[in-house]
Structures are given as structure tokens and as C-alpha cells.
Amino acid sequence: MVFPIDLNRLTPGFSDPVQGSRQTFRAILDAMAHPGRIVATDNNVLSPPRPLNLASVAVCLTLLDFETTLWTDLKPNAKGNGWLRFHCGCSIVQDPSEAVFALITRSDTMPALNKFKPGNDESPEFSTTLIIQTGRLRSTDGKRLTGPGIETFSTLKAQGLTKRFWQDRQSQSAMFPLGVDIIFTCENRLAALPRTSSVEG
């Protein structure tokens, strides 16, 4: 079922879509190439409907379109879904295993990681990219990350992630090169945890 979008109450997307998405992409790339590094999106989007944060919508506006599918943990008729459908042109799917991207606003109740697409041996890139909103994001006393993109180690503390999440993440490591890639967002900042990173602590 497709829910109608209330155009009268829709807030705008990037004020300059070409430069807005380019700058955001560079922030995401910087984060993905340096797991654990917290990067600010120089954000010119405005006021997304709650509970979406600035960085999450910037990532969606940058990477999603009619060629990608999105799963969210919002109610089907939530304003956030309408906003994303309108501005990105993406279709929202009900089953996380069909999603190219997933947006999670409540990490404590999120599905297990193995509910998303891990890719397959010949095409490991056909995996879901998760955008997980967190209450706080900092690079002190958190998990210890090592692997490609990290000179020695980096630390990342993303508030609100459950023990089960980290256990799931641990068991995904054995599947490499399969696995999901994760972008944590908080306000206008983001950090990435690609499948290559080993997590300790």
C-alpha cells in the first residue's frame, strides 16, 4: 500500500541538490574510508520530520533514488517515510532483506543484522547499507576498531546499541567479504563501520 504524501506540510530537501549531495558524499566517503572517524555533514537541509536527524536525511538525499529500495523502522504512514519517498524517489520495502538501504531510528529495537542482505560470494556488493541513528557519537572510550582505513586503531562510541547488535556484528566478521556496511548518524555528524573493520571491547 502506498500512503499519500501531504505536500502542504513537506519541508524542503537540499537547497542546492548538486553541491549538497556532493559535499555529503565526500563526508560519507571520508567516514567509510576511515572507519570510526566522525565527520560532520556540512548540512544545508533544513528541518526533516522527526525522528529523522540531519545526517540521516543528508545521506538518503545523497545516495537514494528510484533505483534503490529503502527499509525503515518507521510506521508505514509516518511523515518520515513520505518525506524520503518524495525527496529521494525511492520505494519503501517491508522486508529488510529486500532493502539496498535501511534507516533505523531506534537501534534498541532494530532487527538482527542477518535480516538484511549480506550480498553473495560472486557479488558481495549486493548487501544492505544500514543508516543507524544514535543518541550520541564520539570517538573516546568506545569500541576499538582495526582494519583497512585505520592506521593503528580507532575508537568509536555510538550510544544506544545493544549487546546483541555487537554480537551480530561479531558473527558477520566471519562472513567477509559478505556483510552489511553501517553508517551511524547523530545530529549532523556521521561515522562508518564497513564490513572490513574488526571490533573489540
Binding site: P17, V18, Q19, S21, R22, F25, I28, L29, M32, A33, T62, L63, L64, D65, E67, T68, P124, E125, S127, T129, P148, G149, P177, D181, P194, R195, T196
Partner: peptide, 29 residues
Amino acid sequence: YNFAYLDEQTKRMIRRTILKAVAIPGYQV
């Protein structure tokens, strides 16, 4: 012509590809 020649939809597709490439070092996407 578009900024940097490519249209935005093409850039999004390439950007998605680059991110997957970074996440799977050495794998040709």
C-alpha cells in the same frame, strides 16, 4: 551541461559503487 558533466542520477549510482568498493577492498564492483 551538468556540473562535472554527469547527471545527478549517474553520480549517485557511481557514488554508491565507490562506497561498496571501499567496503570490499580489491573487489571489482
